[in-house]
Protein backbone atom coordinates (compact mmCIF):
# COMPACT_ATOMS: atom_id res chain seq x y z
CA UNK A 1 0.00 0.00 0.00
CA UNK A 2 1.41 3.38 -0.96
CA UNK A 3 2.17 5.53 2.05
CA UNK A 4 1.36 8.69 0.14
CA UNK A 5 -1.99 7.80 -1.45
CA UNK A 6 -5.04 9.49 0.04
CA UNK A 7 -8.74 9.91 -0.80
CA UNK A 8 -10.04 7.99 -3.81
CA UNK A 9 -6.52 6.96 -4.81
CA UNK A 10 -6.12 5.16 -1.50
CA UNK A 11 -9.41 3.36 -2.08
CA UNK A 12 -8.50 2.56 -5.70
CA UNK A 13 -5.23 0.98 -4.61
CA UNK A 14 -7.20 -1.47 -2.48
CA UNK A 15 -9.84 -2.52 -4.98
CA UNK A 16 -9.82 -6.27 -5.39
CA UNK A 17 -6.60 -6.86 -3.46
CA UNK A 18 -6.60 -7.92 0.18
CA UNK A 19 -3.17 -7.55 1.66
CA UNK A 20 -2.73 -9.57 4.82
CA UNK A 21 0.00 -10.51 7.25
CA UNK A 22 -2.46 -12.72 9.08
CA UNK A 23 -2.98 -15.51 6.64
CA UNK A 24 -5.00 -17.06 3.87
CA UNK A 25 -6.12 -20.43 2.63
CA UNK A 26 -5.11 -22.12 -0.58
CA UNK A 27 -8.13 -24.21 -1.59
CA UNK A 28 -7.34 -27.89 -1.70
CA UNK A 29 -3.80 -27.31 -0.47
CA UNK A 30 -3.03 -25.63 2.84
CA UNK A 31 -3.76 -22.75 5.21
CA UNK A 32 -1.36 -20.11 6.46
CA UNK A 33 -2.18 -18.78 9.93
CA UNK A 34 0.06 -15.92 11.05
CA UNK A 35 2.90 -17.25 8.89
CA UNK A 36 2.56 -20.91 9.91
CA UNK A 37 0.91 -23.88 8.26
CA UNK A 38 -2.23 -24.51 10.30
CA UNK A 39 -2.39 -28.24 9.65
CA UNK A 40 1.27 -29.03 10.22
CA UNK A 41 3.01 -26.33 12.32
CA UNK A 42 0.06 -25.47 14.54
CA UNK A 43 -1.90 -28.72 14.51
CA UNK A 44 -1.15 -29.59 18.12
CA UNK A 45 -2.18 -26.27 19.59
CA UNK A 46 -5.28 -26.41 21.74
CA UNK A 47 -8.02 -24.01 20.79
CA UNK A 48 -7.34 -21.31 23.39
CA UNK A 49 -3.65 -21.35 22.51
CA UNK A 50 -4.47 -20.88 18.84
CA UNK A 51 -7.00 -18.17 19.64
CA UNK A 52 -4.46 -16.19 21.66
CA UNK A 53 -1.76 -16.82 19.06
CA UNK A 54 -4.10 -15.40 16.42
CA UNK A 55 -4.58 -12.29 18.55
CA UNK A 56 -1.00 -11.71 19.67
CA UNK A 57 1.33 -13.63 17.31
CA UNK A 58 3.07 -14.74 20.50
CA UNK A 59 3.42 -18.06 22.27
CA UNK A 60 2.60 -18.36 25.94
CA UNK A 61 3.93 -20.67 28.62
CA UNK A 62 2.00 -23.71 29.83
CA UNK A 63 1.26 -21.86 33.07
CA UNK A 64 0.01 -18.77 31.28
CA UNK A 65 -2.26 -20.83 29.05
CA UNK A 66 -3.61 -22.68 32.07
CA UNK A 67 -4.45 -19.33 33.63
CA UNK A 68 -6.15 -18.14 30.45
CA UNK A 69 -8.30 -21.25 30.31
CA UNK A 70 -9.28 -20.68 33.92
CA UNK A 71 -10.16 -17.03 33.30
CA UNK A 72 -12.90 -18.28 30.95
CA UNK A 73 -13.88 -21.29 33.03
CA UNK A 74 -14.34 -19.50 36.34
CA UNK A 75 -16.92 -17.06 35.00
CA UNK A 76 -19.09 -19.48 33.02
CA UNK A 77 -22.35 -19.23 34.95
CA UNK A 78 -25.34 -21.17 33.64
CA UNK A 79 -27.83 -18.73 35.17
CA UNK A 80 -30.40 -17.32 32.78
CA UNK A 81 -31.13 -14.34 35.02
CA UNK A 82 -27.83 -12.81 34.01
CA UNK A 83 -28.78 -10.41 31.27
CA UNK A 84 -26.51 -11.74 28.55
CA UNK A 85 -27.33 -15.38 29.29
CA UNK A 86 -31.01 -14.46 29.34
CA UNK A 87 -30.86 -13.54 25.67
CA UNK A 88 -29.54 -16.97 24.70
CA UNK A 89 -32.25 -18.57 26.82
CA UNK A 90 -35.00 -16.33 25.41
CA UNK A 91 -33.88 -17.38 21.94
CA UNK A 92 -34.43 -20.98 23.02
CA UNK A 93 -37.78 -20.18 24.54
CA UNK A 94 -38.91 -18.47 21.33
CA UNK A 95 -37.62 -21.33 19.19
CA UNK A 96 -34.92 -19.33 17.49
CA UNK A 97 -31.56 -20.89 16.65
CA UNK A 98 -28.80 -21.47 19.18
CA UNK A 99 -26.26 -19.59 17.12
CA UNK A 100 -28.44 -16.49 16.91
CA UNK A 101 -29.14 -16.60 20.64
CA UNK A 102 -25.55 -17.08 21.73
CA UNK A 103 -24.06 -14.65 19.23
CA UNK A 104 -26.44 -11.93 20.41
CA UNK A 105 -25.76 -12.85 24.03
CA UNK A 106 -22.02 -12.45 23.45
CA UNK A 107 -22.58 -9.11 21.73
CA UNK A 108 -24.63 -7.87 24.70
CA UNK A 109 -21.80 -8.97 27.03
CA UNK A 110 -19.97 -5.85 25.95
CA UNK A 111 -21.89 -3.96 28.63
CA UNK A 112 -20.91 -0.93 30.64
CA UNK A 113 -21.66 -2.42 34.08
CA UNK A 114 -20.18 -5.87 33.45
CA UNK A 115 -18.18 -7.70 30.80
CA UNK A 116 -16.38 -6.01 27.94
CA UNK A 117 -16.79 -2.39 28.94
CA UNK A 118 -15.56 -2.92 32.48
CA UNK A 119 -12.67 -5.18 31.51
CA UNK A 120 -11.25 -2.61 29.13
CA UNK A 121 -11.71 0.20 31.62
CA UNK A 122 -10.03 -1.79 34.38
CA UNK A 123 -6.95 -2.57 32.32
CA UNK A 124 -6.74 0.98 31.01
CA UNK A 125 -6.87 2.32 34.57
CA UNK A 126 -4.10 -0.01 35.73
CA UNK A 127 -1.83 0.97 32.86
CA UNK A 128 -2.41 4.70 33.30
CA UNK A 129 -2.05 4.51 37.05
CA UNK A 130 1.22 2.57 36.85
CA UNK A 131 2.61 5.24 34.55
CA UNK A 132 1.48 7.98 36.95
CA UNK A 133 2.99 6.22 39.96
CA UNK A 134 6.27 5.63 38.16
CA UNK A 135 6.51 9.34 37.51
CA UNK A 136 5.89 10.15 41.15
CA UNK A 137 2.10 10.32 41.27
CA UNK A 138 -0.08 9.50 44.26
CA UNK A 139 -2.41 6.51 44.14
CA UNK A 140 -5.25 8.13 46.08
CA UNK A 141 -5.17 11.08 43.69
CA UNK A 142 -5.38 8.71 40.73
CA UNK A 143 -8.40 6.98 42.25
CA UNK A 144 -10.12 10.24 43.09
CA UNK A 145 -9.60 11.55 39.57
CA UNK A 146 -10.95 8.32 38.11
CA UNK A 147 -14.07 8.68 40.25
CA UNK A 148 -14.46 12.26 39.13
CA UNK A 149 -14.22 11.22 35.49
CA UNK A 150 -16.31 8.03 35.53
CA UNK A 151 -18.15 7.97 38.90
CA UNK A 152 -16.72 4.47 39.38
CA UNK A 153 -13.49 2.48 39.16
CA UNK A 154 -13.64 -0.21 36.50
CA UNK A 155 -13.37 -3.60 38.19
CA UNK A 156 -14.26 -2.51 41.73
CA UNK A 157 -17.67 -2.91 43.33
CA UNK A 158 -20.17 -5.12 41.53
CA UNK A 159 -23.78 -5.17 40.38
CA UNK A 160 -25.94 -7.25 42.73
CA UNK A 161 -23.31 -7.69 45.46
CA UNK A 162 -20.03 -6.11 46.63
CA UNK A 163 -17.60 -9.02 46.61
CA UNK A 164 -16.70 -11.72 44.14
CA UNK A 165 -16.83 -15.48 44.63
CA UNK A 166 -14.50 -16.03 41.66
CA UNK A 167 -11.52 -14.13 43.00
CA UNK A 168 -10.31 -16.49 45.70
CA UNK A 169 -10.27 -19.39 43.23
CA UNK A 170 -8.51 -17.41 40.53
CA UNK A 171 -5.96 -16.09 43.00
CA UNK A 172 -5.28 -19.58 44.31
CA UNK A 173 -4.62 -20.79 40.80
CA UNK A 174 -2.43 -17.79 39.94
CA UNK A 175 -0.43 -18.50 43.10
CA UNK A 176 -0.11 -22.19 42.20
CA UNK A 177 1.13 -21.24 38.73
CA UNK A 178 3.54 -18.63 40.05
CA UNK A 179 1.68 -15.85 38.26
CA UNK A 180 0.52 -13.85 41.26
CA UNK A 181 3.48 -11.51 41.70
CA UNK A 182 3.08 -9.25 38.67
CA UNK A 183 3.12 -5.46 39.03
CA UNK A 184 -0.45 -4.96 37.79
CA UNK A 185 -1.85 -7.45 40.28
CA UNK A 186 0.09 -5.72 43.09
CA UNK A 187 -1.38 -2.41 41.94
CA UNK A 188 -4.87 -3.95 41.79
CA UNK A 189 -4.56 -4.93 45.46
CA UNK A 190 -3.16 -1.54 46.40
CA UNK A 191 -6.16 0.12 44.78
CA UNK A 192 -8.51 -2.18 46.65
CA UNK A 193 -6.81 -1.28 49.89
CA UNK A 194 -7.37 2.42 49.26
CA UNK A 195 -10.97 1.84 48.22
CA UNK A 196 -11.75 -0.26 51.29
CA UNK A 197 -10.09 2.16 53.68
CA UNK A 198 -11.76 5.22 52.19
CA UNK A 199 -15.42 6.14 51.99
CA UNK A 200 -15.88 4.08 48.81
CA UNK A 201 -15.97 0.63 50.47
CA UNK A 202 -15.56 -1.21 47.19
CA UNK A 203 -13.96 -4.61 46.74
CA UNK A 204 -12.06 -5.79 43.72
CA UNK A 205 -14.20 -7.86 41.39
CA UNK A 206 -13.27 -10.46 38.81
CA UNK A 207 -12.88 -7.90 36.03
CA UNK A 208 -10.10 -6.06 37.84
CA UNK A 209 -8.42 -9.30 38.86
CA UNK A 210 -8.32 -10.79 35.37
CA UNK A 211 -7.40 -7.45 33.79
CA UNK A 212 -4.41 -7.27 36.12
CA UNK A 213 -3.45 -10.89 35.46
CA UNK A 214 -3.86 -10.31 31.72
CA UNK A 215 -1.63 -7.25 31.81
CA UNK A 216 0.94 -9.17 33.84
CA UNK A 217 1.17 -11.94 31.25
CA UNK A 218 1.81 -9.30 28.65
CA UNK A 219 -1.54 -8.78 26.98
CA UNK A 220 -2.01 -5.28 25.60
CA UNK A 221 -5.47 -3.72 26.03
CA UNK A 222 -6.70 -4.68 22.55
CA UNK A 223 -5.28 -8.18 22.92
CA UNK A 224 -6.94 -8.59 26.29
CA UNK A 225 -10.24 -7.23 24.93
CA UNK A 226 -10.28 -9.78 22.09
CA UNK A 227 -9.12 -12.59 24.36
CA UNK A 228 -12.04 -11.90 26.71
CA UNK A 229 -14.70 -11.88 23.96
CA UNK A 230 -15.95 -15.47 24.54
CA UNK A 231 -15.45 -15.33 28.32
CA UNK A 232 -19.11 -15.97 29.23
CA UNK A 233 -19.85 -18.37 26.38
CA UNK A 234 -19.73 -21.69 28.25
CA UNK A 235 -22.53 -20.53 30.56
CA UNK A 236 -24.90 -19.80 27.69
CA UNK A 237 -25.73 -23.11 25.97
CA UNK A 238 -27.21 -24.68 29.14
CA UNK A 239 -29.80 -21.90 29.39
CA UNK A 240 -30.62 -22.17 25.70
CA UNK A 241 -31.02 -25.93 25.98
CA UNK A 242 -33.19 -25.81 29.07
CA UNK A 243 -35.46 -23.13 27.62
CA UNK A 244 -35.68 -25.13 24.38
CA UNK A 245 -36.68 -28.24 26.31
CA UNK A 246 -39.41 -26.46 28.26
CA UNK A 247 -42.74 -25.42 26.66
CA UNK A 248 -42.26 -22.58 24.20
CA UNK A 249 -42.68 -19.05 25.51
CA UNK A 250 -42.49 -19.96 29.19
CA UNK A 251 -39.27 -18.13 30.07
CA UNK A 252 -40.02 -14.74 31.63
CA UNK A 253 -43.68 -14.59 30.59
CA UNK A 254 -45.07 -11.16 31.47
CA UNK A 255 -48.80 -10.54 31.81
CA UNK A 256 -50.41 -7.27 30.66
CA UNK A 257 -50.92 -6.24 34.28
CA UNK A 258 -47.18 -6.52 34.88
CA UNK A 259 -46.57 -3.44 32.75
CA UNK A 260 -46.21 -0.59 35.20
CA UNK A 261 -47.14 2.35 32.97
CA UNK A 262 -45.91 5.77 34.09
CA UNK A 263 -46.60 7.85 30.97
CA UNK A 264 -49.32 10.12 29.60
CA UNK A 265 -52.92 9.22 30.38
CA UNK A 266 -55.13 7.73 27.65
CA UNK A 267 -55.93 10.21 24.89
CA UNK A 268 -57.41 10.19 21.41
CA UNK A 269 -55.33 10.00 18.24
CA UNK A 270 -56.55 12.41 15.58
CA UNK A 271 -54.77 12.68 12.24
CA UNK A 272 -51.14 13.81 12.42
CA UNK A 273 -51.51 17.46 11.48
CA UNK A 274 -54.34 18.07 13.92
CA UNK A 275 -52.66 16.19 16.75
Amino acid sequence: MSARATGPNLLQENVGVLKSRMGTFYPGSHVIFRGHDLHTDLKDMDWVELYVFGITNRRFSKEQLRLMHAIWTYTSYPDVRLWNNRIAALAGSCRSTGTLGMAAALAVSEASIYGGGILVRAMDFFIRTRQRLESGGDLTDCIREEFDAYRSIGGYGRPLINGDERNQHMLALARELGLDQGPHLCLAFAIEEVLLAGRWRMKMNYAALVAALGADIGLAPREFYLFMFPVFLAGMPPGFIEASDRPEGTLYPVSCTDILYEGQPRRTWSCQSGN
Binding site: W83, N84, R86, I87, L90, A91, S93, C94, R95, S96, T97, L100, G101, A103, A104, A105, A107, V108, S109, E110, A111, S112, I113, Y114, G115, G117, P159, E248, G249, Y252, V254
Partner: peptide, 29 residues
Protein backbone atom coordinates in the same frame (compact mmCIF):
# COMPACT_ATOMS: atom_id res chain seq x y z
CA UNK B 1 -37.21 -8.12 26.65
CA UNK B 2 -33.91 -9.25 25.10
CA UNK B 3 -33.20 -5.73 23.83
CA UNK B 4 -33.98 -4.34 27.28
CA UNK B 5 -31.43 -6.78 28.77
CA UNK B 6 -28.89 -4.87 26.72
CA UNK B 7 -30.35 -1.53 27.75
CA UNK B 8 -30.33 -2.09 31.50
CA UNK B 9 -26.62 -2.93 31.60
CA UNK B 10 -25.40 -0.33 29.15
CA UNK B 11 -24.60 -2.72 26.34
CA UNK B 12 -23.98 -1.30 22.89
CA UNK B 13 -26.92 -0.10 20.79
CA UNK B 14 -26.26 -2.65 18.08
CA UNK B 15 -26.12 -5.52 20.55
CA UNK B 16 -29.56 -4.62 21.89
CA UNK B 17 -30.93 -4.78 18.35
CA UNK B 18 -28.99 -8.00 17.72
CA UNK B 19 -30.64 -9.43 20.83
CA UNK B 20 -34.07 -8.38 19.56
CA UNK B 21 -33.32 -9.93 16.18
CA UNK B 22 -31.95 -13.18 17.62
CA UNK B 23 -34.92 -13.73 19.93
CA UNK B 24 -37.44 -12.29 17.47
CA UNK B 25 -36.20 -14.60 14.73
CA UNK B 26 -37.80 -17.70 16.13
CA UNK B 27 -40.88 -19.78 15.60
CA UNK B 28 -42.83 -18.27 18.48
CA UNK B 29 -44.06 -14.86 17.31
Amino acid sequence: HAAMCGGVCGSTAASSLMAALAVGAGQLA
